[in-house]
């Protein structure tokens, strides 16, 4: 840490300089008065530093926190890991760039896991930008690191269809009426891995990477509930994850919640398939847990400080 501070003196100088006006105000008006009338932009600045400095620290030093996978992350991992090579799985990428910070690492880890297991991957999207997210993940994982996997034989991007839950309602019994071609415009009959696939009940597992509506909830309601033999695991945003717990485990055997869930699953996948020197691109969530820690501590401190001021003021009024 000391070495970091000495080497990155310029960053330390910028952080200190940016906070000088706040310190001066505390000195002149007093701590309590400053806190009572604190301009919210100071909170913005504190949060900026709380997130930016750990990112920079981890980026420079490469150090991350150890991660212990929780029961649900392990359950998610096991659902995919128990499959055999060649088993078909559906990967529904129902998210777009705004939630990539949370869901990008999950999507990467799911694809890395499935590709390592040599599963047949069927990608589709209920969000308009989902097809692009699929392209990006394929370009990040499969194209550079799994060159033996062939498009159309081992993986396929079916692309986006509009209609939210209406799409699930159709593909669960009749995939081909809606998906007449893949996202490249190739007819279903010309795609080797589509042979014999008529609906998504034939998938061994459905993986839902979900940012909201339509997403995991709709997959539970329109696919898993009416067809209980389907197995669904999900990677969901922090906002969505708590709402999905009532479905666990009967309708949703595996759930990764927010960046922590991503980091746990990443750890399981990389430990199992990444080797001793895993590519750092597969440890994105693990790195992001650093800023997460500092920012959480800041938020707790802010709440505590605000409550101390509140209690002091209430005591004085009485």
């Amino acid at each position: 840490m000391t070495e970091f501070i000495v080497n990155q003196w310029w960053l330390v100088a910028i952080v200190i300089a940016s906070l000088i006006p706040l310190v001066m105000r505390i000195v002149s008006a007093g701590l309590l008065e400053t806190l009572r009338t604190l301009d919210r932009r100071w909170i913005f600045l504190l949060l900026l530093w709380a997130v930016l400095i750990p990112i920079y620290f981890i980026g420079v030093t490469g150090r991350t926190f150890p991660e212990v996978p929780s029961v649900l992350a392990r359950a998610t991992f096991d659902e995919i890991d128990r499959l055999n090579p060649g088993d078909p799985i559906l990967l529904a990428f129902d998210y777009d760039p705004p939630s990539e910070g949370e869901l990008g690492p999950m999507a990467t880890a799911f694809v890395y896991h499935a590709a390592s297991k040599k599963l047949r991957m069927y990608f589709m999207a209920l969000w308009p930008l989902g097809a692009q997210m699929i392209d990006n993940t394929i370009a990040k994982v499969i194209t550079p690191d799994f060159r033996d996997l062939v498009y159309g034989r081992d993986y396929i991007n079916l692309g986006f269809k509009s209609g939210q839950e209406g799409v699930i309602k159709v593909v669960v019994t009749n995939l081909r009426e809606l998906y007449t071609t893949d996202s490249r415009g190739t007819a279903m009959q010309d795609i080797p891995m589509m042979e014999g696939i008529t609906n998504i009940q034939q998938m061994k597992v459905i993986v839902s990477v979900s940012a909201g509506y339509p997403g995991t909830k709709e997959w539970v309601q329109y696919a898993v509930t009416p067809f209980p033999s389907l197995r669904l695991v999900a990677g969901a945003t922090g906002v969505q994850a708590p709402l999905l717990y009532p479905y666990v485990p009967r309708q949703l055997p595996g759930l990764l919640g927010a960046i922590k869930g991503a980091a746990e699953y990443e750890k399981l996948v990389v430990d199992a398939y990444g080797g001793a020197n895993a590519d750092p691109k597969y440890l994105e969530a693990l790195r992001r847990m650093g800023p997460q820690l500092v920012a959480h501590l800041l938020i707790i401190t802010l709440i505590v400080v605000a409550n101390v001021v509140f209690l002091i003021d209430r005591g004085r009024k009485r």
């Binding site: 949060l47 930016l52 910070g101 922090g238 906002v239 927010a258 992001r288 997460q292 959480h296 938020i299």
Partner: peptide, 21 residues
Amino acid sequence: AFGYTVMGRIALLAIRLEFLL
């Protein structure tokens, strides 16, 4: 829900700062 929401929002900010840095 609040705790999870904070967690989610921080991750969204982190990726943008990662982009810049």
